[in-house]
Computed example of a mutant assay.
Amino acid sequence: MNTSEPIAPTVESILAAACEREGGKERLSVEARSFPEAVAEAEKDGRTPVIAEVKPTSPTTKGVREDDPVELAREMVAGGATALSVLTEPEHFGGSPETLRRVREAVDVPVLRKDFLLRGEQLDVVEADLVLLIARFVDDLAGLVSAAKERGFQPLVEVHTAAELGEAIEAGADVVGINNRDLAQLEVDLATFESVASEAPEDVLLVAESGIGSKKDVRRMREAGADALLIGTAIMDGDVRENTREFTTT
């Protein structure tokens, strides 16, 4: 785990909880819905590929949204979402494996498990199509990427710097999320994606994460090379179907 640089206290608390969280009792074998195929289908249909995030709350948002996550997910898909992201971190994001399970049963698009996963056995808690692996916080990134693929998951490896991008590629990542949020200070800068994406190989599918709040931001990220965008707060704040449609309509 690369913690040589300062980390925001909130993130330290999240990581401490993640270290203590147990894994599943049995090794999973998943038949994943293809995220690259879903992205290609969205492009074919003239939609901007968006991963809409079902996020009840987070350390960087105010309040809690208490709507049924399944209904929110269905509305997002109706609005044109290419995939969904579902939080399973309970203490700080109000998520749960059961929520992800219910959502995945209710929709036919790929579903990302968003959590702070540190060890292989933590992959075995719930089936998903993609799993988020944060390069900065994983000791053996190549090992965890391999463990995820062996179970049938598609790893979405999150990075924030060009150095982390290099680690992700070396670890075998095919899908890379570039987080505009610096987890050291929780500050957001869209220029992060532009800088890091310029170093990415052409055959890697790039997802822009965090800070995307308008169609102008969408255009900026797409022009910088984003194949898809992960959008949470800006979709969850209001009518999720209409908000998703706004972001997916070019």
Rank of each mutant, 00 (worst) to 15 (best):
M1N: 02
N2P: 00
P6T: 01
P6D: 04
I7K: 03
V11D: 02
I14C: 06
L15V: 01
A16E: 14
A17R: 10
A18Q: 00
C19N: 03
R21L: 03
G23V: 03
K25H: 12
E26V: 09
E31M: 06
S34I: 07
E37D: 15
V39F: 15
A40N: 10
A42K: 10
R47H: 13
T48E: 07
P49T: 00
P49A: 07
V50L: 12
A52Y: 08
E53R: 12
V54S: 01
V54M: 06
T60C: 11
G63P: 12
D68K: 02
P69T: 15
V70M: 06
E71L: 13
E75S: 15
G79K: 01
T82M: 14
A83S: 10
A83E: 02
S85F: 12
S85M: 07
L87V: 11
E91M: 11
H92I: 04
F93K: 05
G94K: 03
G95D: 12
S96E: 13
P97S: 10
P97C: 10
A106Q: 02
V107K: 00
P110S: 06
P110M: 09
V111P: 08
K114C: 05
R119S: 10
G120V: 08
G120M: 08
E121G: 01
Q122P: 10
A128H: 12
A128W: 15
L130K: 01
L130H: 12
L132E: 07
L132A: 05
L132M: 11
L133G: 09
L133E: 05
I134T: 02
I134Q: 00
A135I: 04
L141S: 03
V145D: 06
A147S: 15
K149G: 14
E150M: 03
G152Y: 12
P155R: 04
V157I: 13
V157L: 06
V159L: 01
A163F: 01
E164Y: 14
A168W: 11
G172Y: 08
A173W: 05
D174S: 15
V175F: 02
G177F: 04
I178V: 15
I178K: 05
N179C: 08
N179K: 07
N180H: 09
N180F: 02
R181T: 13
D182Q: 04
A184H: 13
E187W: 03
A191H: 14
A191N: 13
T192D: 01
F193Y: 07
F193L: 11
E194Q: 13
S195K: 14
S195L: 09
S198N: 12
E199H: 15
V204S: 03
L206N: 12
E209C: 09
E209Y: 01
I212D: 11
I212E: 10
G213H: 11
S214W: 03
D217H: 10
D217W: 00
R219P: 05
R219E: 15
R220I: 02
E223Q: 14
E223Y: 01
D227C: 03
D227A: 06
A228Q: 02
L230N: 06
L230C: 06
D237N: 14
D237K: 14
D239H: 12
V240W: 00
E242P: 06
E246F: 05
F247G: 01
T250Q: 12
